[in-house]
Design a protein around this nucleic acid. Structure first.
Lengths: 342, 342
DNA sequence: CGTTGACAAGTATACGTATGCAATCGAGTG
DNA sequence: CACTCGATTGCATACGTATACTTGTCAACG
C-alpha cells in the first residue's frame, strides 16, 4: 500500500536529508529541532529552515525505538457507541495533552477484547482502561510487563491496578432515598451486566438500600441486560407487561433508562405520572428537554483528572493494595420521577 | 514514567532473549514466529515455546522502522461526541480488520485540528478523515507525503483526494418531496456549518429543491449552526418564537433535529401535529420510540466498505480528478412529520 | 566418490533517531 | 605564550526487528 507520485515513489525525508541541506550532521539536526543546548543560534536557524523546506517530520518509530518511549497513551473503550464513553474520552484527552501525551483511542466492539499484544508492543507509554470487566486479565498482564495503566469507571474483583471510578454506592443510595420518599413500594430494576463492576455495585447497593428502607426488591422485578437502549427496552417490556407492574424502575445507566422510557411510551404508560424512571451517569442526552431524565451525575473531568494523576503515580506493588479512588456523585432531579400512583 | 516491579525495573523481552532461550539466532526467531519458510518444524516449536515462556511481544516500533509499515490506520474524527461518528468508526474498524489493519481513533474536539505532524510521522500506513472541513489542507499534505488516505462523509471544495460520502442531494430531494407533499409552505431550516461539505450540500439541495416546487425558503427562516443538540435547540427557538413560524423544519442532521424537537417541546408545540421535523443520518437514537424521528438513512457499512476499498486503490494523480463515490440514501418515515396545519 | 542442490540457520546490515563521548575552536587567564 | 575551559559539533553506537546474503549440512545422483 505504498503510494506513488508523478510515477516515482515518494521517499521519506529523514534527518540526514535535513542535515545535508543545512550542511551539518544528523545529530545536530536532532538537537537543533528539539531546542537542546549545544547548538549555536545560527546553526539552529539553518537547520530549522532546511527542515521547513523539506517538510521534515521525524519518524515516530525511530524516535520511539531510540528513546524507548512514545509519549502516547492508549485509551481502551470497547463500547464507543455508548455515548458515555466518547464523553469520557474528551476530558481524558485534554488532561493527557496537558502532560504532553498524545491520546489514541482503541476500540473493538465486536469481540469486546482488545488484546495484550496490541497494548504491550511498545506502542504506548500507558493504558487507560474504561470498559474492563470484573475478571479481565488485562490489568495483571499490564502490571507484569511494567506498563503504567489505570482503570477508569470500573474496578476488578481482586483489586490489582490503580483505579478511579464513580461512587456507585452513594449514587444508588440517593436514588433509593428518592424513590422511597416518593412512596414507591413496587420497585423494578433493569440493571447492567453482572460481569461489570458498575453493573454489580449498583445492583448490590440497590438491593441493600431498598431493604434498609423496608422495601422488597422482588427477584422477578429485576432484569439484567447489557448497557444499551434496546436491551433496556426489551427488559422493561417484560416488567411492564404484568398486572402488578412496578411504579418505579431503577436503571443500570442512562442508556438503559432511555430504553425503559421507550418501552413505557410504546405501552402508553405515562412518565412520570404512572411510572418513575431513574438513570445513572447523566450523559448529555439526559438533560435534553425531550428526555429530561432524572439521574445521577458524575464530574467526568474530575474522573479524567484523577485517572491521569494515577497514571503517573507509583504502580501497584505486589502485596500492597492498589490505589482506588472514588469520585463523588450527585442526584439530578429532572422530570422522569414522581409520586407513586395510588 | 517507567514503572518498576519488585524494586527493579522491568526489562523488555526482545527477540534476542527468545533466541538465547531457544538456542537459536534472533533472525530465526523472527522467521519462526511469522511462519516464514526456512525453519524446521522442531526449531519453530522450540522458538514458539521460548517466546511463550517469556511472554514475548515483538516491538512495534522496531518492526515499523524495519519494514517501513505499521499495518495501522488512523481514523480521524474530531467530533466523537456526535453519535454519528462512533457509529461510523465501528464498521470502519471491522472492514480494516478484514485487511489485517489495526484501527486507531484520533480525536481532538478541542481545537478541531489534528495536525499533519501527528498523522505523517510514520505511525500510520493510511488515514481516514471523517470530519474534514471544506478547505482543510490535510488532504493535500497527505497527498504530498504519499500517505494513502480517504475522506469519508465529507468532500473538499477542490477535490484532491479520494472520497466517499452520502448522497446528500438525493436525500435532501426526498425530504423536499415529503415536506412539499404534506402541504407545508412555510418551511424553516436549521442547517450545519458552511465550513462542512455536508452542511453546504444539504443546504444548497434544500434551496434548489424547494424552489423547484415553488416553495420559497426565506432567508430569515434559515439558521446555520454546528452539528449539536444545543445549537439546534437555540436556533429552533429563534424560528419558533415568531408569529409566522414555520410548519416544518428541515435539519442539517439528526442531532440538530433532536435539538429542534427539544425547543418545540419547551414551547409546547406538538410534533407532528403543529410542527414537522426531519433529520439526516438516521443515527440509532432516531429510531428509539421516545424519539421516532423521520430522517434519511445511509448504510454506514457500505460507506465503510467503500472507504477501505478506496484506501487501497490508486491515489489521486495530479491533473486527474480523484475518485468520488456516493452512497445512496433512503428516506425513513417515522413520526415527526405530518400534514401542514391549517 | 565427487558434484549438485535444497534447505536450515547464522551473519551482517538497514531502518531513523537520540545520545555519550571525543574533537575542535575560540576566548580568557596567568 | 601555554594552558584551561566552555561552547559547538561530529563520530560512534544503541534501540529491536526484518531480510539479503552466506555458510553449512545432508541427501540424491551421475
Amino acid at each position: 500500500m505504498k503510494w506513488e507520485r508523478d510515477g516515482r515513489e515518494v521517499k521519506k525525508v529523514t534527518g540526514f536529508d535535513v542535515a545535508r541541506r543545512a550542511g551539518v550532521s544528523q545529530p545536530t539536526v536532532s538537537r537543533a529541532l528539539r531546542n537542546l543546548p549545544g547548538t549555536s543560534p545560527e546553526t539552529r536557524e539553518r537547520v530549522l529552515r532546511a527542515a521547513a523546506e523539506l517538510s521534515y517530520i521525524a519518524s515516530d518509530s525511530a524516535r520511539s525505538l531510540s528513546t524507548q518511549s512514545t509519549r502516547r497513551i492508549a485509551v481502551v473503550s470497547e463500547e464507543l457507541t455508548n455515548p458515555y464513553y466518547p464523553e469520557l474520552v474528551e476530558p481524558l484527552r485534554r488532561r493527557l495533552a496537558e502532560h504532553d501525551l498524545r491520546t489514541v483511542v482503541i476500540t473493538d466492539s465486536e469481540h469486546r477484547a482488545v488484546g495484550i499484544d496490541v497494548l504491550a508492543d511498545g506502542s504506548y507509554d500507558g493504558v487507560i482502561l474504561t470498559t474492563c470487566e470484573r475478571r479481565s486479565s488485562l490489568p495483571r498482564d499490564l502490571t507484569e510487563r511494567g506498563i503504567p495503566h489505570v482503570l477508569v469507571n470500573r474496578v476488578l474483583d481482586v483489586a490489582e491496578s490503580p483505579s478511579c471510578s464513580v461512587d456507585n454506592v452513594g449514587g444508588t443510595a440517593a436514588i433509593v432515598e428518592l424513590v422511597a420518599d416518593l412512596g414507591h413500594r413496587t420497585v423494578g430494576a433493569v440493571l447492567g451486566p453482572v460481569t461489570t463492576s458498575t453493573g454489580r455495585e449498583r445492583a448490590e447497593a440497590l438491593r441493600a438500600g431498598l431493604r434498609a428502607r423496608g422495601i422488597r426488591l422482588r427477584r422477578d422485578m429485576v432484569r439484567r441486560t447489557s448497557f444499551g437502549h434496546d436491551p433496556g427496552r426489551n427488559a422493561a417490556h417484560d416488567l411492564l407487561r404484568r398486572s402488578d407492574r412496578p411504579t418505579a424502575i431503577v436503571c443500570g445507566n442512562d442508556v438503559i433508562a432511555l430504553g425503559v422510557l421507550s418501552a413505557a411510551r410504546e405501552r402508553g404508560i405515562s412518565v412520570p405520572e404512572q411510572l418513575t424512571v431513574v438513570g445513572f451517569d447523566d450523559i448529555p442526552m439526559a438533560s435534553w428537554p425531550i428526555i429530561d431524565l432524572t439521574t445521577v451525575r458524575c464530574d467526568l473531568d474530575a474522573l479524567a483528572r484523577t485517572a491521569v494523576e494515577l497514571l503517573h503515580a507509583e504502580p501497584a506493588r505486589p502485596g500492597l493494595a492498589p490505589v482506588e479512588r472514588r469520585i463523588p456523585v450527585s442526584l439530578v432531579l429532572r422530570r422522569t420521577h414522581g409520586p407513586a400512583p395510588a
